[in-house]
Amino acid sequence: MSFGVPKHMSLESGEGIFLVGDTYSVLLSSEETSGKLGMVEVLVPAEAGPPPHTHLNEDECFILMEGNLQVTAGHDEYEVSQGGVVYIPRGTSHKYRNLSDTEPAKMIALFTPAGMERMFREIGKPGIRGQLAPPVDFADVEAMGNVAQKYGFTFD
C-alpha cells in the first residue's frame, strides 16, 4: 500500500491556474498524497469571491495568509483575518468574499479527500503563482457548471 512520499514546496513552486478571476496554485495534488489531501493556494482579487456552493465529496479548510475575508458557512458568518482558519464540512453551503476594495487576499485551501484540484486543472488556464488572474471570464463560470456533477459540487 502506498502512502505517498514527503514533498517540499518553495514559495516559487506550485502549478498556477487562472480561473474565474482567481489564481489557484496547486501545492499538493491527489497523486502526491495518495488521494488523502489536496492543497491549493488561492489569490482572491479585491471585492471578489465565489457564489454559494456546496462540496458533496470533501471537507474543506481555509487558512488565511493575507487580507480579510468574509466567510459564510451554513448559517454562520465569519470575518476572518490573517492567520484565521475556517473548517467547512462536506455538504455545507459556503462562500467567501475579499473585504478589501484594493488588495488581493491569499489563502490556503485544503481538501480532504483530494481531487478538487483536478477541476482547476481541467477547466482553468495556465497561470503564475502569486500573479493576479485576468478578470472573471464568464466562459469559466459556464465551464464550472458543466463539470460540477463530475467533481461533486453544486451552486446554491
Rank of each mutant, 00 (worst) to 15 (best):
K95T: 15
V44E: 04
T102R: 14
H53F: 07
V40R: 00
D156R: 09
A46K: 07
S30R: 11
M1I: 09
V136Y: 07
E31Y: 12
G91D: 13
P50H: 03
V20M: 03
E31K: 15
P52N: 02
T92E: 04
S13A: 14
T33Q: 09
H75I: 10
N57L: 15
S81R: 08
D59H: 15
V40G: 04
V136I: 15
E31S: 14
A139L: 06
G145V: 07
E60K: 11
V136D: 11
G4I: 02
N98L: 11
E32Y: 03
F3V: 15
M1E: 12
N68A: 05
T54G: 09
L11I: 12
Q149P: 04
K36P: 02
G74R: 07
S81L: 08
G152Q: 06
P51R: 15
T72Q: 01
K36F: 01
V5Q: 13
F18A: 00
M1K: 09
E77G: 08
H94Q: 10
F120C: 06
I88M: 09
I128S: 09
I17R: 00
R90V: 06
G21E: 04
L27I: 04
T72D: 01
S10R: 15
G130V: 03
Q149T: 15
R90H: 12
N68L: 01
F153T: 02
G35A: 04
G14M: 00
L56K: 06
G145H: 14
D59T: 11
I128V: 14
E117A: 13
A139T: 06
H55E: 13
D156W: 10
Q82C: 08
P45V: 03
L69D: 02
P51H: 13
D140Q: 05
V5M: 14
P113D: 08
Q70E: 13
L43I: 10
E122K: 12
G130P: 02
V86M: 07
L28Q: 12
G115K: 07
E117D: 11
A73C: 10
G83H: 04
R118C: 08
P89N: 10
K106E: 02
